Amino acid sequence: MSWTLETPDGRSLHVNAWNWRPTLELLESSGVVDAETAELLGYNISVDLSGEDAQRIATFLEGHLAAIPADGRVLLDGSVTTEPDTFAFHRDDLARNYSATAEWLARFRDFCRSATEGFTAC
């Protein structure tokens, strides 16, 4: 499963579920987006975020990324690891399958920073 984030002027960013789910958890747990918005963003439906929302996300990620090593990953529970992802499927602990890489979070930050008119996630 994947999502496409698209600005009104046609720029887009694609993300898979493995990176998107922990990103949403991070944004919700930090209060950057409310629980309802985070839940809606987790479905493959069209959800609009305003330019203010995008800037708030970018600002949060800018500060949060300062504490994550370049090779780091944010796990579903919000913790950070530098342990490489083996891409093995963990049936016994599904949460271990999800992590938002520092690289992805930086790309998402940059996308949000430039999305002054907001974006749609679908």
Rank of each mutant, 00 (worst) to 15 (best):
T4C: 06
E6Q: 14
E6C: 06
P8E: 10
R11C: 04
R11H: 13
L13R: 08
H14A: 12
H14F: 08
V15R: 13
V15D: 09
N16L: 13
W18H: 06
W20S: 07
W20R: 09
P22F: 10
P22R: 02
L24G: 01
E25W: 08
G31T: 07
E36T: 14
T37I: 15
A38C: 14
A38K: 02
E39L: 02
L41C: 12
L41N: 13
G42V: 01
G42W: 02
I45K: 10
I45V: 12
D48I: 06
S50D: 03
S50I: 10
S50W: 12
S50A: 07
Q55C: 05
Q55M: 15
R56Q: 02
I57V: 02
F60D: 03
L61K: 06
E62L: 13
H64Q: 07
A70Y: 03
D71W: 02
G72R: 03
G72V: 00
R73E: 05
R73A: 14
V74R: 03
L75D: 01
D77L: 01
S79C: 11
T82P: 03
P84S: 08
P84H: 04
F87S: 09
A88S: 07
F89P: 02
F89C: 08
R91H: 10
R91L: 14
D92S: 08
D93P: 06
N97A: 04
S99V: 00
S99A: 15
A100K: 05
W104V: 11
W104G: 07
A106H: 09
A106S: 10
R109G: 03
R109P: 03
F111H: 00
C112Q: 09
R113W: 04
R113H: 13
R113F: 15
S114D: 13
T116V: 15
E117I: 03
A121Y: 06
C122Y: 12
C122T: 14
